[in-house]
């Protein structure tokens, strides 16, 4: 009895544990944005301080201020370069999606096709693209097509392999249900396999988006201006030859920005497609 009494005395109108959880959540909500921003300020500040105090020459490590200045001054050169690299990346990703989907669907429609083709898709993927790129330049007359092919090879595999797994991971009972209701092959693909594969495909798309950019950069490095005109990666390479490190860093930063933008866009697409029904979009209460 006395224990119960003491509990009653301690009992307050608000649950302390719940209050603590709520406080933690508020803290995390603020920290999610302020902490990375703080890290960035510290990093850039430290960099600027180091360059200034140690008097590092700009052709070894340019200061953040110099990079910012170059970004503004060279914008008329950097912006078209960014468009150029962007075009190559987007086209490579687009063809990667089309190619990956078509091949994945043909794999799941015919086991024999998969048996015949899959090892070669793997070989294409595991062979470093840097090693293939010079060959592409030799065999493909049009340099832009060669660069596109180079970026495509890197980007398409995650789409292919993820979508193939997704198309195969349909619920067996749903398969049976479709059989009982006399579904055609097309209906099965359209209403069962495709929606089942969607989360897997979108996972592959996120990876492929980043890889398409990497492929585009590699293509620019290896195939050069002939293929794409002056893209960001070619700009970066040229700047390094000229010891123009301000421009080099500016181009590098823009490439990173593109990568982040692509990732953000793919994450947004994924969220929009899945948030209504998929477990991955479910917040635990």
């Amino acid at each position: 009895m006395s224990r119960e009494n003491s509990q009653m005395i301690e009992d307050k109108s608000v649950d302390i544990e719940e209050e603590n959880i709520a406080r933690k959540e508020r803290l995390f909500a603020i920290a999610r944005w302020t902490l990375p921003s703080l890290m960035m300020v510290l990093f850039i500040g430290g960099w600027q301080a180091y360059v200034t105090i140690a008097q590092v020459p700009h052709y070894i490590l340019p200061s953040p201020l110099l990079i910012a200045k170059t970004l503004v001054e060279d914008w008329s050169l950097l912006w078209p370069a960014m468009l150029m690299t962007g075009r190559l990346t987007v086209l490579a990703l687009l063809f990667a999606v089309i190619g990956g989907l078509v091949i994945a669907v043909s794999f799941t429609q015919s086991k024999l096709v998969e048996m015949a083709m899959f090892p070669y898709a793997v070989i294409l993927q595991v062979t470093p693209v840097v090693a293939i790129a010079p060959l592409l330049q030799v065999y493909v007359d049009n340099a832009f097509v060669a660069a596109l092919l180079c970026a495509w090879i890197v980007a398409f595999f995650p789409i292919l392999s993820n979508t193939t797994i997704g198309l195969k991971s349909t619920d067996h009972n749903l398969e049976d249900l479709f059989t009982i209701y006399g579904a055609t092959r097309w209906q099965r693909l359209r209403y069962l396999s495709a929606p089942s594969a969607l989360p897997y495909f979108l996972g592959g798309l996120k990876i492929a988006g980043g890889l398409a950019l990497i492929g585009a950069v590699v293509a620019e490095f290896v195939i050069g201006r002939a293929g794409t005109g002056l893209g960001l990666a070619s700009t970066l390479l040229e700047a390094s030859y000229r010891f123009n490190f301000g421009r080099l860093y500016a181009a590098l930063i823009l490439i990173s920005v593109m990568g982040v933008a692509i990732f953000g866009l793919m994450s947004l697409i994924s969220h929009l497609c899945l948030y209504r029904w998929h477990e991955s979009a479910l917040k635990r209460e």
Partner: peptide
Amino acid sequence: TLMPWAKVKDNVWLPYRL
């Protein structure tokens, strides 16, 4: 054995849809 991507009414529609 419901299709998680489909609303309740679309799940019930399935036998007819096919």
